[in-house]
Design a protein around this nucleic acid. Structure first.
Lengths: 208, 208
DNA sequence: TTACATATCCCATTTTTATGTGATTGATGC
DNA sequence: GCATCAATCACATAAAAATGGGATATGTAA
C-alpha cells in the first residue's frame, strides 16, 4: 500500500487524482493541499510514502516545499509535477533532491506506474525531461555549479581563464590586488588546485 | 553547359555516367580514363569544369591525380568518388583541395545535382561524409598541428597542461630547468601567448 | 657549405604567484 | 543577538615564472 500525498492548487486536478488513487488497488490517497505553507507538519502527521508536488502554486510553491521537506526528511519520495519542461526549474528540483519530474499531461496509467517506480527507488521522468537533464549534465555543467563558487569568484575565475594577471583583474574589477589574491585563494580551495594554470585547466575541462 | 571529365577504372560505371551526362540537358561529357597517369595533359586539352575522380584506381590513383592537378590548376572542381567513407582518405582529399566527396552509390539524380553544386562553388558531400568531416575538424586538430610545435615542445606543453611546474617537468624529462625554460619560451612564441595559464588555456581550447 | 631549427645548458633580474595571518563591513539565517 | 559567509583590504615572505642575454651540438634542407 503506497501512501500518496498531493500538493496542487487546481481543485479539479486534486479531485481527479484523489479519485484515481482511491480507486486503485495498492494506493492510498492520504490527502491534498492547495499550497505548501504547512507542508512539514502535514507530512509528519500523514506519513506519506510519495508526495506529488505541483511546482507552480500560490503562496508557498513546490520548489520551496521541496526544500522544506528535505531539511527534515530525506526518505519520502517527491515527484514534481509541471506543465512545461522548463529548464531552470528542472535543474533546481533535481539539485534539491526531487526524485522525479513529470509533466501534468502524463496519462493516469503512467502516473500510477511512475509513483510505484519512485517508491521503489527509481527516478521517473518523461523522456523530454530526461533529455533536458542529460543536456545539463553533459554540456551545461560549469565550475560555478560544480564547485559552489560565489558570483565574484566566478567572475575572477573567468578573467583568469582569459589570461589576465592579478594586477589586470584588480584593475578590471576596481578592487585591490590583495582582494584578488584572497578570492583566488578561495577559488583554489574550492577547486582543489594550487596554481593558476591548474585552475584554468580545471575550469576549461568543465566547460567554463 | 558544364564540361565533365571522369576518371574511373570500372568500365561499366564509366559507360553509365557517360550515358547519364550525355543524355542530360546542361551537361557535356568530355571524356573518361581508367587512371590518372596522364591527367595533366588530358585536363589541359579537354578543359573540363568538373572532374569526377575515383579514389581507388590502378597505377596512378585518385589522390595522386588530385595532387597533380592542383599543382597546375586550382580552378577546376574535383569531386572524389569512393565506395567507403574511409576516414583517412576523406582527410587526405580535403587537405589536397578536393571540392567534394561522394559515395559511388549516390543516385544519378543526386549526382547531377552535386556536380552543379560543385560548379557553382558548393562543397557537396553525402551526409555520412559530412559527419566525418565535422568530427575531424572538431576533434582532431591539436596544437601540434596548428602551431608547428616540435615533438619536445609538444611533450612539454602536455605536462604544462597537466599542472606540472618547471621543476617537475625538468625532473620528468631528465633535463635541466633552464632547458625547460627555453622550450617554454619557444612554445609561447609559437602560441602567441606570454604566460603559463594562457598557454594551457589555448592548448585546451584546441583539443589538446 | 651555409643557414636554420632543435635541443640542450647557464646566469641574472624582474615580475608574478602562492601562502599565511590578520581585520572590517554587510548580508543572511537561526 | 550571534554565527556565518561573502567581499573587501593589508602586510610579509617564499616560490615560481617571465624576460633577456648568452653558448654548444646535431641534423636537415637550401
Amino acid at each position: 500500500m503506497i501512501r500518496v500525498l498531493l500538493y496542487e492548487d487546481n481543485s479539479q486536478l486534486r479531485d481527479g487524482i484523489s479519485i484515481l488513487l482511491n480507486g486503485t488497488e495498492g494506493f492510498e490517497f492520504v490527502g491534498s493541499f492547495p499550497d505548501c505553507s504547512d507542508i512539514v507538519a502535514q507530512c509528519q502527521s500523514l506519513q506519506p510514502d510519495v508526495i506529488l508536488m505541483d511546482i507552480n502554486m500560490p503562496n508557498v510553491d513546490g520548489l520551496e516545499g521541496l526544500k522544506r521537506i528535505r531539511k527534515v526528511n530525506s526518505d519520502v519520495k517527491i515527484l514534481m509535477l509541471t506543465v512545461f519542461d522548463d529548464n531552470q526549474n528542472v535543474f533546481e528540483a533535481i539539485k534539491n533532491g526531487a526524485n522525479g519530474y513529470l509533466l501534468k499531461k502524463t496519462p493516469p496509467a503512467k502516473l500510477l506506474e511512475y509513483i510505484q517506480d519512485a517508491q521503489t527507488g527509481g527516478a521517473p521522468m518523461t523522456s523530454s525531461i530526461a533529455a533536458q537533464v542529460l543536456k545539463m549534465f553533459s554540456g551545461h555543467s560549469n565550475p560555478v555549479e560544480q564547485f559552489n563558487l560565489s558570483e565574484r569568484e566566478s567572475t575572477v575565475l573567468g578573467l583568469l581563464v582569459n589570461g589576465h594577471s592579478y594586477k589586470m583583474i584588480a584593475a578590471d574589477l576596481f578592487i585591490s590586488i590583495d582582494t584578488v589574491r584572497s578570492h583566488i585563494k578561495k577559488i583554489y580551495e574550492k577547486l582543489h588546485v594550487n596554481s593558476k594554470s591548474e585552475a584554468v585547466a580545471k575550469a576549461l575541462k568543465n566547460n567554463y
